[in-house]
Amino acid sequence: MAVRTIRLFGDPVLRAVSEPIGDIDDGIRALVQDLVDTVALPGRAGVAAPQIGVGLRAFSYNIDGDIGYILNPVLVEVRGEPEPVSEGCLSVPGLWHDALRHPWARVEGIDLDGAEIVLEGDGLLAQALQHETDHLDGMLYLSRLSPEDRRTAMREVRESDWF
């Protein structure tokens, strides 16, 4: 279908809680294709539907060349104590800060046929699962920063050429 433009910090769609997907129709199939096309670009680990302007619970991922998607994902389990992990976001371009993330995560949802999908793992996958489900709940990674880092990040946002 198409690589979609990423919505940037300040766009209201990024702060809204996404709606669950009901019927899987041609519109949802097109959304999934756009999410997959958009995440396939180099340097991208995940793209949530709100990042392309769609307030529905879906995201795509690209972890070490393994590209996929999940509909109506729910973060059902995390393991380990949250630890600071260097993180960026396509919706906050050019910024990298340490966000608190659990070292292991499990997400459950469905595919386009309505079959159950389970995504689980550690490292970059765990980080992406947490990051993308946050997007679906209207949260950007900036909310996961320490107060001091958040102040620094917000100053960097205000000084950026894209804001």
Rank of each mutant, 00 (worst) to 15 (best):
F59T: 07
I52Q: 01
G114S: 03
V76M: 11
G43S: 11
P93V: 08
V47L: 13
A99D: 14
G55Q: 14
G65D: 10
L119R: 05
L31I: 11
I52G: 07
R106C: 07
P82H: 01
G27H: 06
A99T: 15
A40L: 10
E116F: 10
D26C: 09
G53A: 04
I52C: 12
G55C: 15
V118I: 08
V32I: 12
A40K: 09
D37L: 05
I52Y: 10
N62R: 12
L56A: 14
I110P: 11
G94Y: 01
E83H: 12
Y69C: 11
P50F: 12
V118T: 02
D66A: 13
T38K: 05
L95D: 00
V39I: 04
L112V: 03
D98N: 14
D34H: 14
D113K: 09
I70E: 04
V107N: 02
V36Y: 11
A30H: 12
G94W: 04
L90R: 00
Y69D: 05
I67C: 13
V39C: 06
G88M: 04
A48D: 00
A126Q: 06
W96D: 12
Y61K: 00
D122Q: 05
H102S: 05
D113Y: 13
R57S: 04
W96K: 14
A48I: 00
P103Q: 02
N72Q: 07
